[in-house]
């Protein structure tokens, strides 16, 4: 297959950046999108040009490293997948493909298609955990967790931290990301002691990082490779309102 690629090139954070157009030929329909870019890069190196920088690692959809905005969509034209699990057979021979980095103020561009997503880690730092020191845990079966709650917790916990929710959101909001963690821990008995503080602190950090607000367009959930449902956001909202409007029942 043959493709014309319009790729965002930007030398570093200070550079203005621009689109450049490349041609690739002889691409197998079974090649993944990233492998197609590998082919392009090999070609560019041979031509003495600077290869295109892009993030990737596991290439099986779980590490959350890859993230390209392809033809106007986070992770490309299919819903709920990562870029590494997008295959060229989903494009037509001769297509022109536009590739941009994930764009958001809290995701500064490092080079070309590589962005810094450490803002998401800083949200987690504010409370995306249960404060338990190694060695202090009781027996694992001492606190039963109803299966439906455990299953929902798992659904929320599968977030891979790729940032597609931010990239797809018209307001560059990180609500789905934050809500996934808040909701995961809200489902479990172990998460209760810090539940109220967690949601407040994580939301505050989300704002400090410069993410936008959530306007419930639902774009995030359509693009989310981990299929985090919008119910996570509703859960966060509930917890947030509750935590701010009611007295803490744990303080007697």
């Amino acid at each position: 297959m043959r493709f014309t690629l319009r790729i965002w090139r930007q030398k570093n954070a200070q550079d203005q950046g621009r689109f450049e157009t490349y041609e690739v030929d002889g691409i197998s329909p079974d090649a993944s999108f990233l492998e197609m870019l590998d082919v392009l890069n090999e070609k560019l190196i041979h031509e003495g040009k600077d290869p295109v920088a892009f993030d990737h690692d596991c290439r099986e959809g779980i590490c959350g490293s890859c993230g390209l905005f392809i033809n106007g969509r986070a992770h490309g034209p299919l819903p709920n997948i990562t870029t590494c699990r997008l295959y060229m057979r989903h494009f037509k021979d001769g297509d022109t493909i536009t590739i941009e980095p994930f764009r958001a103020k809290p995701f500064p561009i490092i080079k070309d298609l590589v962005v810094d997503r450490s803002a998401l880690d800083r949200i987690i730092q504010k409370g995306g955990y249960i404060s338990v020191n190694t060695g202090s845990a009781p027996d694992a079966n001492s606190i039963p967790v109803p299966k439906p709650a455990a299953d929902r917790a798992f659904d929320y916990a599968t977030c891979i931290g790729c940032g597609a929710c931010v990239a797809a959101c018209k307001n560059a909001s990180a609500m789905l990301f934050t809500a996934a963690k808040v909701s995961h821990l809200a489902m479990l008995p172990q998460g209760q002691p810090e539940r109220r503080q967690r949601v407040k602190r994580m939301v505050a950090q989300m704002d400090i990082e410069g993410f936008g607000h959530c306007s419930n367009t639902g774009a995030c959930a359509v693009e989310c490779p981990a299929k985090i449902p919008l119910a996570a956001i509703a859960q966060l909202q509930r917890d947030f309102i509750w935590a701010n409007l009611t007295p803490d029942p744990q303080i007697k």
């Binding site: 965002w8 689109f19 905005f69 033809n71 106007g72 969509r73 034209p77 819903p79 536009t98 941009e100 764009r103 958001a104 103020k105 809290p106 797809a168 018209k170 307001n171 560059a172 909001s173 410069g210 993410f211 936008g212 607000h213 367009t217 639902g218 774009a219 359509v222 693009e223």
Partner: peptide
């Protein structure tokens, strides 16, 4: 506020597909 969280927009945005 909206513009501030994404100062540089996308050249191509197929938002119809997800919202």
């Amino acid at each position: 506020r909206e513009r501030k969280s994404r100062p540089q927009g996308y050249a191509l945005n197929a938002a119809n597909a997800n919202s």
